[in-house]
Amino acid sequence: MSARDNILGKLKAAPVTPVIEPDTAAHFARFASTASKLELLKHWAAAMRSVKTEIIWVTESNWADKLAARVTATNLPDLLVSDTPHGTKARAALANSDVTVKVFDRPVDEWKESLFNDVSASLTRCLCGIAQTGTLVLWPDSKEPRTMSLVPPVHFVLFDTQTLYPNFFTAMDAQQWSAGMPTNAVLVSGPSKTADIQLTLAYGAHGPREVIVLACLPEGVNPTLLEDAA
């Protein structure tokens, strides 16, 4: 008998208990936020900022310039982008700067040490956002690999605010994640952190020290609406 057979055999021999089917959807419907889209976005921004995330309000037409401005303003020497339309756009915006733009275009195994040692910032997009917890959902793929959002100390995320969901359940449900998951998906809520030393919060544990979100608003939405004190 294999360990597998032994374990399953013991479990199957155990008494059967009744199954009560919980209604997860009903729970999240019951406690769903009634906030407007704008209010949800404000809540999302506040939650992300509370965990040291920087938010830059952008639009489809100006995000690349704002990214370039932010990269040069803090003298980041380089930026890692993906071989994607938004990667290309970022590259173009930085073409006339001193910033070295690198493209993640070959297997990590060929340049792992360099990825760790020579890259200071990266840009990726994200699948969607979650308002309740101040979260972005990363959905890496063959064009935009997993380590891009993990290894470089500064991570820029391009976020289409139209894809903001009230909570984790609504995001997962609306996008039917259960039909099939990618190799890896990650919920990110701020830069990496730890409180393992005497419960003192410190940012920049192992992953990015800084997360900067380029939050893309529809044309015509005034970002100041999102910044009032209310």
Binding site: V51, T133, G134, V186, V188, S189
Partner: peptide, 11 residues
């Protein structure tokens, strides 16, 4: 309310 990362690995 949430941790920094929720990492889902499927393959």
């Amino acid at each position: 309310p949430i941790t920094t990362y929720f990492n889902m690995i499927s393959s």
